[in-house]
Design a protein around this nucleic acid. Structure first.
Lengths: 195, 195
DNA sequence: GACAGTGATGAGACCTAGTCCCATCACTCT
DNA sequence: AGAGTGATGGGACTAGGTCTCATCACTGTC
C-alpha cells in the first residue's frame, strides 16, 4: 500500500480496529495504526482529531439518519411516532453484514473507559441533534429534550442487544420493542406523579 | 505554603479553578497548578487521576446524596417520589454560599469540550447509580433506567439554571419544578404511543 | 511536453499529559 | 534514639497531539 493509495481514512479505521482487537486500545500506538495502514502519524491526525475518534467515524451519518427521519415526518405526527420513525431509519446503518464489525467495535469500546466516555459524548450529540429536530417541528423545550433522551436510551439498549455475538434479530425490531417498552414505563412514571 | 501544609487536595482544586478561570483550561499546565498550590506535578497526579478530575471532586458525594435518598425512601414510595426525594437531598450540595464557586466552575467546564465530555461521564455514573438504587428497591430494569435518566435530566437543567449569575432561587425549588415539568411530559409522551 | 498550482502526505521538532521509580522528608510509635 | 509509615519531590520516560516545512502525485494550461 503506497503513499497514494485511496481511502486513507478507511484504511486507518480498519487498521485501528484490528490492532485494538488484537492488542487492546492502550497497547496500540497511533504510529502503529498508521504504519499498518501504510501511512504516518501526521496523516492519522489529519483524518481524526484524536486517537479515540478513529472508532466513531459513522456517528455523523447516524445523526443524519435520525434527524432526517424526524424532519421528514408528517407535521401531524406525534413526538412519539417521530422517535419510532427515527429508530426505524437508523436501522439502515445496522445491517446483518455489518454485524460482525459492530460486535468487534463494541467489544473494544466496552473494554476501555476512555472510549466509553467518548461514546457518551456521541450519544449526547445524538440526543442534542434529535432535540433540535423535534423543537424545529414545534415541540416545546422540555418535551423535545425528554423525547430525545428516551430515543437515545431506546437506541442504546437496542444497539447493545443487536451487537451481541449470538443475535440474529434485525436492529429495527429490537429498537421498536425497546421504544414501546420505554413508552409504557414513561406513562407509568408520569401517572405516578399524579397520585 | 510548605511541603507539609494540610489539605493538599483542596489547595490543588482551588489553584486549578483560579488558573482555569484566569487563563483558560488549555493554557494552564498541571505543573502550574501544582506550583500555585505549593506542590509538584507528581503530587497532583497522586490526588487526581487526570487533569480533568480536579474539577469533579464533589461527584462522589453527589452520587451518595442521590442514592442514599432513594435507599432511605419508604418501601411503598413510588419511583417518581424517589426521584423527588433524591433531588431534594442533593440540594444540600448547592447552598447559596457555594453559588459563586459553582458558577465559576460551570463557566470553565462550559468553555471546554474536554471538560464537557467528562461532565457527561459523571452524569452517566450518576444515572447508573440511581438506576442501581431503584432496581434494589424493586423497580424493573426499564423503569429504573428511564427514571434515572429523567432524574439526571431534571438535575442537569436545574443545575444549569441554579448556577447562573443572576439566580437567587434555591436549588431545591428549581429542581422540583424541573422534575414536575418532566413528569407531565412523560405522561404525554407515553399517552401518545397509545393513539 | 514543460510548467505552475493544488492537495494530500512525510518527516521531524516540540509541548504536555500521564506513568514510574526512587530518594527524601515530617511525623509517630516504641 | 531509632524504626516504621505515609506523603512528597524529582527526574526519567512514553505517547498523544500540534505545528511547520519539504515532498510527492495529479491536474490543467500554454
Amino acid at each position: 500500500m503506497g503513499r497514494w493509495e485511496p481511502n486513507a481514512r478507511e484504511r486507518l479505521e480498519r487498521a485501528a480496529l484490528a490492532l485494538f482487537a488484537e492488542h487492546g486500545y492502550d497497547a496500540t500506538t497511533v504510529a502503529e495504526i498508521a504504519d499498518r495502514a501504510g501511512l504516518t502519524k501526521s496523516t492519522f491526525f489529519r483524518h481524526f482529531a484524536d486517537k479515540r475518534e478513529v472508532l466513531f467515524g459513522g456517528q455523523d451519518m447516524l445523526v443524519k439518519l435520525f434527524t432526517d427521519a424526524i424532519r421528514s415526518a408528517s407535521p401531524s405526527a406525534t413526538t412519539a411516532s417521530c422517535l419510532a420513525a427515527a429508530l426505524e431509519a437508523s436501522a439502515a446503518a445496522f445491517t446483518a453484514e455489518r454485524h460482525d464489525l459492530a460486535e468487534q467495535r463494541r467489544a473494544v469500546i466496552g473494554a476501555n473507559p476512555e472510549l466509553r466516555e467518548r461514546e457518551l459524548l456521541k450519544r449526547a450529540r445524538l440526543s442534542s441533534a434529535m432535540a433540535d429536530a423535534l423543537r424545529a417541528r414545534g415541540a416545546d423545550e422540555t418535551t423535545a429534550r425528554l423525547a430525545a433522551e428516551v430515543g437515545v436510551l431506546a437506541f442504546s439498549t437496542a444497539y447493545a442487544r443487536w451487537a451481541t455475538p449470538d443475535n440474529r434479530e434485525p436492529f429495527a425490531e429490537i429498537a421498536q420493542a425497546a421504544l414501546r417498552d420505554l413508552q409504557a414505563r414513561a406513562t407509568a412514571l408520569g401517572d405516578a406523579a399524579r397520585t
